[in-house]
């Protein structure tokens, strides 16, 4: 199976409409990511928040595809939606994590606190966006590989083989630690 990005290759074709279709798809993926992120942090029910995270990950997978990384787009869907979101949903089923009703938990500062959070978030977004837009990003003069799946596999097993082994160790320790922690709570009762 050839995993080269079809959309980006098809962009400079003879048909001028194809370019606008590609642009429309790109804007759709950006909008999906932004909407998913907003849903993930602003809903009251946690299950909707998880759905927002999944939506944002779909949009991110599309953006990865536009960045000539179709392998990462696949992995984003597989790991984030297939593993992370499903695991969080299991956590939602085991605990009852809905945001408490406002009358049972009075917030000490109902107006100031959200305002401060919005101002801090807007400051971070504005500052980083200004930095990103203000800098002139220059393309490298030469590339040592083409970023294809074959190049990723070669680097993963040569240059980054040590990190590859270490990440598998980290995952093993994390799974064992998760089992121990979750089991310790059970035996106590």
């Amino acid at each position: 199976m050839n995993l080269t990005p079809l959309l980006a290759v098809a962009a400079p074709s003879a048909n001028p409409a194809s370019n606008w279709i590609t642009l429309g798809l790109f804007i759709m993926f950006v909008a999906t990511t932004v909407a998913g992120a907003l849903i993930a942090v602003n809903t009251v029910r946690i299950i909707r928040s998880v759905s927002g995270l999944a939506l944002a990950c779909v949009g991110l997978a599309g953006l990865f595809y536009f960045l000539h990384s179709p392998f990462l787009a696949l992995m984003e869907i597989l790991i984030y939606i297939g593993a992370v979101c499903v695991t969080i949903i299991f956590g939602v089923m085991l605990a009852e994590p809905d945001e408490p009703a406002p009358e049972t938990h009075k917030r000490p500062y109902p107006v100031i606190a959200p305002l401060v959070a919005v101002v801090i978030a807007a400051g971070i977004f504005g500052g980083l966006a200004k930095l990103a837009l203000g800098h002139k990003w220059e393309a490298p003069v030469a590339k040592i590989n083409d970023g294809s799946v074959a190049a990723i596999g070669t680097s993963l097993l040569s240059t980054y083989s040590m990190a590859f082994e270490l990440i598998s160790l980290v995952l093993l320790v994390a799974i064992l630690g998760a089992l121990v922690i979750a089991r310790g709570g059970r035996t106590k009762e």
Binding site: V30, T33, V34, A37, L38, A40, V41, I46, S49, A56, L63, I88, G91, V92, A95, P97, D98, E99, P100, H105, P114, V116, A117, V118, I120, A121, A122, I124, F125, L128, A129, A132, L133
Partner: peptide, 22 residues
């Protein structure tokens, strides 16, 4: 810019969410 927006919403959520899963 999209990455900066995701970071800002993530930090906003960390400040506003009241449950650990959020």
């Amino acid at each position: 810019v999209v990455a900066a927006f995701l970071l800002a919403t993530g930090i906003f959520g960390l400040m506003r969410r009241r449950t650990l899963i959020g």
